[in-house]
Amino acid sequence: TLFEALYDYEARTEDDLSFHKGEKFQILNSSEGDWWEVRSLTTGETGYIPSPYLA
């Protein structure tokens, strides 16, 4: 399933992933509550992002 970022986000820890509004992601793991592990389709990087920032 693909999701798109609604807002920009700046990583706060080394496990987080910074991203920009409009960036698209593949969800790798959504079992961690509000923090999902994703792969950016723009950069190929993986990390955790806050799920409320996605649509």
Rank of each mutant, 00 (worst) to 15 (best):
T1G: 09
T1H: 12
T1Q: 12
T1L: 14
L2D: 04
L2W: 13
L2E: 07
F3A: 05
F3D: 12
F3C: 09
F3I: 05
E4M: 12
E4L: 10
E4D: 05
A5F: 15
A5I: 03
Y7C: 11
Y7F: 11
D8S: 07
D8V: 02
Y9R: 02
Y9M: 02
Y9K: 04
Y9G: 01
E10H: 07
E10P: 03
E10K: 08
E10S: 09
A11T: 03
R12W: 15
T13G: 15
T13D: 08
T13W: 15
E14W: 08
E14V: 09
E14T: 12
E14S: 12
E14Y: 07
D15T: 11
D15Y: 15
D15P: 05
D15V: 13
D16A: 15
D16N: 11
D16M: 14
L17A: 02
L17E: 01
L17S: 03
S18A: 06
F19L: 03
F19A: 05
H20Y: 12
H20K: 14
H20T: 12
H20N: 08
K21V: 08
G22W: 03
G22C: 04
G22S: 02
E23K: 00
E23P: 00
E23Q: 05
E23D: 15
E23A: 03
K24P: 03
F25R: 07
F25A: 08
Q26E: 14
I27G: 00
L28M: 05
L28I: 10
L28H: 01
L28D: 00
L28N: 00
L28T: 02
S31M: 11
E32S: 13
E32N: 15
G33D: 11
G33P: 13
D34Q: 08
D34T: 07
D34K: 12
D34I: 11
W35A: 04
W35L: 07
W36P: 00
E37M: 11
V38R: 00
V38A: 06
V38C: 02
R39W: 05
R39Q: 11
S40V: 07
S40L: 06
S40Y: 02
S40E: 02
L41K: 01
L41G: 03
T43Y: 01
T43H: 02
G44V: 02
G44H: 04
G44N: 06
E45Q: 14
E45I: 08
T46L: 11
G47T: 10
G47Q: 02
G47D: 00
Y48V: 07
I49S: 00
I49A: 13
P50K: 10
P50D: 02
P50A: 05
S51L: 04
S51A: 14
S51F: 10
S51R: 10
P52T: 15
P52I: 15
P52F: 15
Y53R: 03
Y53N: 08
Y53K: 07
Y53F: 11
Y53Q: 07
L54D: 07
A55H: 13
A55C: 13
